[in-house]
Amino acid sequence: MTGDADKSDKSNGAIILGWWRANLRPDPDTGPARGLRARLRRATHVVDVLAEAQVIALHDALGRRHDPTRLAALVPVLAAVKRPDGPRIARAVGGEEPRLSHLRFQRLIRSDNQELALGLRRALPLVDHTCNVAALGEDFLKWNERIRVRWCFDYFGKMPPDASDAAPETEETT
């Protein structure tokens, strides 16, 4: 029973980061980890990813509350990350001199699952394969309009407005 309580106490991002450190980039880097990364990067079908025991273990660690096809799209992206301690990916590729063009960024935030995964895998080399793995994993699994909006603000290096601040501005303008 305590295992279930521990799962609920940890965020999805923390679970994903712990899994990444244990399976994809263990210290020291091992042959099995290199092999897993290679298999995941080469995977072309959902079942290729889900056929890995470590991926099923991640699904179980997340409490089985996520769509396995979405998780299967995320895991090859995680396999392409070399350092997990960078900024959020949208902030890393954006800014005053963006590394990812505005048009490619727009295409990225409009995409879902496999297209999103492909766009992220193409963006990672632009930031030396470094990003916040926990945030990336959490955002990918929950990918929705609120996250897309935050990514837009991150891309331009701005803080998103607080939803509670938006209401008074609307009232003043009416």
Rank of each mutant, 00 (worst) to 15 (best):
W151I: 03
P84L: 00
V75N: 07
V81M: 08
S111T: 14
Q106F: 03
V149N: 10
R107W: 03
V149D: 12
Q54V: 02
L126C: 09
R148V: 08
P28M: 09
D4C: 10
R34L: 15
R146A: 15
W20V: 06
L103P: 02
K82D: 14
R41N: 12
L74V: 08
T130N: 00
R91V: 01
A123W: 12
E172R: 15
S111R: 10
L118P: 04
E138V: 02
R41K: 12
L24S: 04
V47S: 08
A79C: 06
M1V: 10
A79H: 01
F156N: 03
P125R: 11
G63N: 01
L124T: 00
R37L: 04
L50D: 04
A73P: 03
I109H: 05
A57E: 15
S11D: 09
E172V: 12
I56W: 06
E138D: 13
T174R: 15
N12K: 10
C152R: 10
A53R: 13
A166P: 00
A51M: 03
P87F: 05
T174Q: 09
A14L: 04
N132T: 11
H45M: 01
D4H: 03
E97W: 07
G94K: 06
G157E: 10
I56C: 06
L74M: 00
T173S: 12
E172S: 12
D29M: 15
A134G: 12
C131S: 08
P76G: 10
S164R: 10
D162V: 08
R83C: 08
V77L: 09
R122M: 13
L78T: 11
L17C: 00
P125I: 06
T2P: 04
P87T: 14
T2D: 13
D60Q: 08
Q106H: 14
I56T: 01
R148C: 07
L36R: 04
N23K: 14
D4G: 09
A117E: 04
T30D: 05
P87K: 07
E145Q: 14
A5R: 07
V133R: 07
V55W: 12
V77E: 13
R39P: 00
